[in-house]
Simulated assay, not measured.
Amino acid sequence: MNSMKSVINQSAWKDVFQGFEIVGVAVRDRDTLQTLARKAVTPDEGSHLLDGQIPTRIASIFLSDPEDDNVGYQELEGFAYPRMGVSRHPFERPGGLVTGMGKDGNTWPFGGGSGPMEMICPGDRPATQRLRCLFGFTYSVGLGRKIFRRNAVGHWTRIEGIPMSRDEDELQAAGFTDIDAFSETDMYAVGGHGDVWHFNGREWRQMGFPTNEQLATVTCAGDGNVYITSEGGTLWVGQQSTWRELEKGGSSVLWNDTRWFDGKLWLASDYQLRVWNGRELVVPEHDGKPILASGHMDAHDGLLVVADLWSVSTFDGQTWRKVVEPFKD
């Protein structure tokens, strides 16, 4: 990592991050990061709380601003199992978005002006697993193959043409956990047990996939391939209904995020950060030294960001930079 001091100074770290664990990160633009953090609670404390009662904080970090004014945050209440994303052009105010698992899919815009509260689908529990911004529009993908698109401020519409799963026994077998696209007429959504769907500009169709393993992420990469990860950290490559296994994973957890950046596929889980070098998954290196990072990840506008529970780092293709790190008293 770059030896420069972190972007967030000790005072800001104490105000915003001390006592909290980072559970989400997103790149709004090259100079602005969004983080989602939740209060660190002991197992005993957690046993007496509903998930929506755990204090949640969202922060905007301004990488080019002076040290004494480069982070702002808000407290959120009532967001169970929150997910964070971003909103960009064509919306006038780019910013962050946080949604929870409630029955209405309550979603809070922040960072480019805050609020008012939006509802993805009132009363129909969109069960968002991920928010992804593609070609300016933010998509919510959730259990039971539900996909919604934010077409205007406060206005989300369901993507039609995909049979929804309503049966409780089928919810785990049917996607979605991730979505990505080469274009608005070449999109992939994955999840459930080998549940892969493709949109060709006219209709969504279910694709064949070689396994019924649980699927975690999908990336439409700059090399023209589609990469999918499944349980155990296994990596697949292909398109439509033609897939092959690149590497059998030996992990006990799924990959949290996969992104194409700097001409390579990057993968992040709770325990590791890896890069596919064309032959195998390897630990990324910089100046001959391994980059030890893990957690959640995003990439946009020439910037990769990786965040574990307590720290945030960025990579611009040349330099690794520590943005947030714990300060010792």
Rank of each mutant, 00 (worst) to 15 (best):
Gly232Pro: 06
Arg259Lys: 14
Glu75Phe: 13
Trp255Glu: 14
Glu245Asn: 15
Ala299Ser: 08
Pro43Ala: 03
Thr229Tyr: 09
Asp186Cys: 12
Pro94Arg: 03
Leu246Glu: 00
Gln214Trp: 06
Ala307Met: 03
Val324Glu: 08
Trp310Asp: 04
Asn70Gly: 01
Val323Lys: 02
Ile291Pro: 00
Ser294Arg: 09
Leu215Cys: 06
Pro82Met: 13
Val190Asp: 04
Ile159His: 00
Asp262Lys: 07
Lys103Gly: 02
Lys14His: 11
Glu21Ile: 09
Val282Pro: 03
Ser47Gly: 00
Gly201Ser: 09
Glu203Arg: 15
Arg132Pro: 01
Gly201His: 12
Asp31Ser: 10
Arg57Ser: 01
Trp320Ile: 00
Gly233Glu: 08
His286Phe: 15
Arg57Lys: 09
Glu285Val: 09
Pro122Cys: 04
Trp197Thr: 02
Tyr73Trp: 14
Gly192Tyr: 14
Glu231Arg: 05
Val218Pro: 01
His300Ile: 15
Thr314Ile: 01
Ala26Asn: 10
Leu143Ile: 08
Ala189His: 02
Met164Pro: 03
Arg145Thr: 03
Val324His: 08
Ala80Cys: 12
Arg145Gly: 02
Val23Ile: 15
Phe79His: 07
Arg166Ser: 05
Val324Asn: 10
Asn9Tyr: 08
Met207Phe: 14
Gly24Arg: 09
Arg132Leu: 07
Val218Lys: 05
Val25Ser: 13
Ser269Glu: 05
Ser269Lys: 07
Gly232Asp: 04
Gly78Lys: 14
Trp108Thr: 05
Leu50Glu: 10
Leu281Lys: 14
Asp316Glu: 05
Val253Trp: 15
Leu76Phe: 15
Val141Ser: 07
Lys5Ile: 10
Asp124Thr: 05
Ala268Met: 12
Asp262Trp: 12
Ala189Ser: 04
Glu160Asp: 08
Thr319Asn: 02
Ser252His: 02
Gln318Phe: 09
Arg125Phe: 14
Trp13Phe: 08
Gly222Asp: 02
Asn9Thr: 05
Ala127Tyr: 05
Ile291Tyr: 03
Gly175His: 07
Ser6Asn: 03
Ile61Glu: 02
Trp13Ser: 00
